[in-house]
Every structure is written in C-alpha cells, then in structure tokens.
Design a binder for these strands. Structure first.
Lengths: 151, 151
DNA sequence: ATTATATCGTTCGTTTCCGAACAATTTATT
DNA sequence: AATAAATTGTTCGGAAACGAACGATATAAT
C-alpha cells in the first residue's frame, strides 16, 4: 500500500513537534511557543507585532492564535497591549523573561533544524522547500477558490 | 528571516489536514478518520487489525489512538471486539457504514493527493519523499538515542 | 511456580488546532 | 451622515495530539 503525500507530511510534522517539545521542556515553553516567541523577539525590534501577523506568518486560525497567546501571556513571556490608533488591534510585546530566553531559543531552533536536515545536501533541501512551497500554493489556491466540486 | 524546515513542515501539515477535513465534512468523518478507516478497510480483509497497528503505521501515541478509535466507534464506523486468544488485544472491525464509504473515501484521498502534488513532477516528488524519509530517520534516531546533549 | 518484564489498552490533564457565531471597531459606499 | 462591508479579536465546542500513570494480561527468567 502506497502511503500518500499527506500522510508523510502529517507524520513528519508530528515528529518534529515532538522533538521541539522535548527540547524546550527545560525552558518551560512548548515547541510552538518557541517558534512564536522567536518571531516576536525578532520582529518587535523593527515595529509593532499584532496577532494577525502571527496568523498570516504561521498559517494558524484566528482562534488558535488567541489561545496560543493567552497561554503565553499566562506563562509570562509576552504582554498584550491595546493600541490607541486602532482599538481593534493588540500589540504583542515580549517580556524580560522572553528577552532572556532569546539566545537559547535561537540556538535550540537552529540545533533542531541541524538534526532534522542531517545527511541531506543543500541542493536536496532547496528542492524540498520548493516542492513544499508549491504544495502550499496548491492548497491556498483551493482555499481561495473554494467553489471546486467535492469529489 | 529564513523560515526553518520544521516550520515549513508544520504549516504544510495543517493545511493538508484542513483540506481533508473540509473534503470529508459531507461524509460525516474527519480527515484523520478518513485515513484510518481507509487503512482498516484495506487491511481487515487480509487479517485482523489491532490498535497497535494504527500506532505503528501512523506514528500516533497510544492514547491518541484510543481517543481516535473511540470517536470512530461513537460515529458508528468501526467496532472494537475483544480477542479470545489474547485478552489484551482489541480487534478493529469496520461496520456496514464504513464499507459503504469505501469507494468515496478512496476517491477523496486520491483527489486530495492529486491537488497537493499539482505542478510537481514525479521526479521531484520522489526526491521529496526521500528527503522526508531521511528526516524521519534522523528524528527516530534521536528518539532512540535520547541521551544526546540538550542544546 | 513465582517473580520479573514486556505488551496492550484506558484514563487524565494539557497543548494545539479548527470552524462558527459573536462583538467591537474601522473603512467604504451611497 | 447613515448604512454597508471589512477587519480584528474573543468565546465556545470539539477534534487531534502528547506524556504520565495505571490495570490487565501475556511472556520470559529464575
């Protein structure tokens, strides 16, 4: 029985998350949180980061982002501040605690990526990313269209 | 900012699941359930299927499989029967309802895979799978070893 | 035979994810 | 100016995933 592409991707994704969770357990944050906090740390230097940025960058749904950030606020690694210029928005701000984790988080993410791509040439990796990008495009196109006939 | 491999994979995985969920909504089953029921339908012809088979094939944890199958039993697409020869095991049996869905499920899974791989040559796809396999091996190796230094 | 070990499934609490329905606010239309 | 439409975030219920701790059973070791 041939395993389809989706199954491959799902399985791989689980394993990656599992590894990330284990890696960051000592730091008191989860794998997904590590990615989000890293993004916030990097981009809040350049300008304000809002919830909807997390949505678009990570491809999470609105409600997912809400829950995720609530958890992170509870853990004390971010704050969510109201914005005067637009009352709908909330600015995501990293706390002291998050800034302290910065170097460690970055190192862990790099290390995990190194492990993941062990034994894979940069050329192969490049093609892998290209294929992944194409797949993403395919799914997004369908998502936009939405009107395609169900099978 | 370079997006790391894990992020790519996670994002892609979500989108695939989303698409599968939407596709199977009309049939009253979820995306993951569709994969599992397909596996069961195919393999229960050859011999009994137990929960642990689902574990190994899909890479899910024990508790995940329990919950998944409980949901499927509640939906009436499978039964879980005790086995006389070994009281620990439970045989997973597809119901009438599941058998009726067989062709549709198979078609939907194929269709989703077709959409996913649109615009990707079979050579590229082959390499994609090889890279994914290597990544899986890398993660499994670490999982076995476990003793590697945390970053 | 008894004890130890391994296997299989359940339960519990938690995180991660979604869609749908909602409220509040901003922007566009007219 | 008033109404319509779009954007942002929340809440709710549920599915999908995990680890840890547990009980029951089967197999191995002594």
């Amino acid at each position: 029985m041939e395993k389809d592409c989706g199954a491959w991707i799902n399985l791989l994704s689980h394993k990656v998350r599992k590894r990330l969770d284990a890696t960051f357990q000592d730091l008191g944050i989860t794998g997904v949180q590590s990615r989000v906090i890293y993004y916030i740390l990097v981009h809040s230097k350049e300008g304000p980061v809002f919830q909807r940025d997390i949505e678009t960058v990570f491809g999470f749904s609105r409600s997912t982002v809400t829950g995720l950030l609530q958890g992170m606020e509870r853990s004390g690694i971010i704050l969510r501040e109201s914005v005067e210029s637009d009352a709908r928005l909330k600015r995501i701000v990293p706390t002291e605690k998050a800034v302290c984790l910065d170097a460690q988080v970055a190192a862990c993410l790099r290390e995990t990526d190194r492990l993941l791509t062990r034994g894979i040439s940069s050329g192969q990796l490049q093609l892998f990313k290209e294929v992944a990008a194409q797949m993403m495009k395919n799914l997004d196109q369908w998502d936009q269209g939405e009107a395609e006939p169900h099978c």
